[in-house]
């Protein structure tokens, strides 16, 4: 039975990669229609870089992604610092509050944001996109930073304070260097969350601030083109780069929790991962 299930698993892995491989292969198809194959060509990549409207949406997505990720990382760091370094009344409640956006179905959060922006007269545009993406990314960055900060020896920042460091110096000289990789992970992962977001963007983008996924979506409604496949191949490449930059170890810790061997045998397990937060809620 286990052998049989091993084969099933291998088939599942094939299932997971066939679409990805297909996108990459078809992006090199010379034919202007995806329905026939006419040999290899880089033509669609060239066309991609000449597609003005698409590049405009890429620019919007980049700007929104950088601001949303920057804000989410900064706010996530501050929240995580409060939640890991201090014991105060209602701490669990506040942790729940910060990760609350995780349990609201994304589409519901999208219409809720549209409602609030509409009723308060805020014009839909880059700002509303950034705010929308920020709230989706915040639980992610907070949990990543909590994971990193809670494995940090609390006496290090305390020592810095004792030695006369201002809070800012403690941050730049102690906390930042020690949590740099988690910060990078927070930034990159929330950037991709924003960059590929379509649900929240559907409700928070305004005229002239169409994001790239929204543009791809409207292009796809009229049918798939080899150009979209070329774009897809580049996005797959971007995914690989991001996973590589974040590091497999870090990625694993975020998605499935820490390694057993990393934990001291008598210490309480200190893992905070995305999925534990979801099961907890």
């Amino acid at each position: 039975m286990d052998r049989f299930l091993g084969w099933v698993t291998k088939l599942v892995l094939v299932f997971l990669y066939v679409p990805i491989v297909a996108v990459v292969v078809y992006s090199f198809n010379a034919s202007p229609r995806t329905s026939s194959w006419e040999g290899l060509s880089l033509r669609w990549y060239v066309e991609l870089f000449g597609d003005g409207p698409l590049l405009k949406t890429l620019q919007t997505s980049l700007i929104v992604g950088i601001f949303a990720a920057g804000l989410a990382t900064a706010i996530g760091f501050l929240s995580a610092l409060a939640l890991t370094r201090y014991r105060f009344k209602g701490r669990a409640f506040f942790l729940g509050a910060i990760v609350l956006p995780l349990i609201i179905p994304e589409i519901v959060l999208g219409v809720a944001l549209l409602t609030v922006f509409g009723s308060s007269g805020i014009k839909l545009g880059v700002v509303t996109l950034v705010l929308g993406h920020l709230i989706v990314a915040l639980p992610l960055t907070t949990l990543i930073m909590m994971g990193s900060l809670s494995s940090l020896d609390p006496s290090l920042p305390e020592a810095a304070t004792d030695l006369g460091c201002t809070p800012w110096q403690t941050f730049t000289r102690v906390l930042f260097p020690l949590t740099r990789s988690a910060m990078l992970a927070s930034f990159l992962l929330s950037f991709t969350t924003s960059f590929s977001n379509i649900v929240i963007s559907t409700f928070t983008s305004g005229v002239g601030t169409t994001t790239m996924p929204l543009r791809i979506y409207s292009m796809l409604k009229t049918g798939i083109t080899p150009e979209i496949n070329a774009l897809g191949a580049l996005l797959i490449l971007l995914t690989l780069v991001i996973i590589f930059a974040v590091g497999l170890q870090q990625m694993r810790r975020i998605l499935v929790g820490a390694e057993e061997k990393d934990q001291a045998p008598d210490a309480a397990p200190d893992t905070i991962s995305l999925q534990t937060a979801t099961t907890e809620r």
């Binding site: 679409p19 990805i20 995806t34 979209i228 996973i243």
Partner: peptide, 13 residues
């Protein structure tokens, strides 16, 4: 972690 839209339109191809 691959873009959701890419994973969707891959099936069209």
């Amino acid at each position: 972690w691959t873009d959701f839209l890419v994973r969707t339109f891959a099936w069209i191809t």
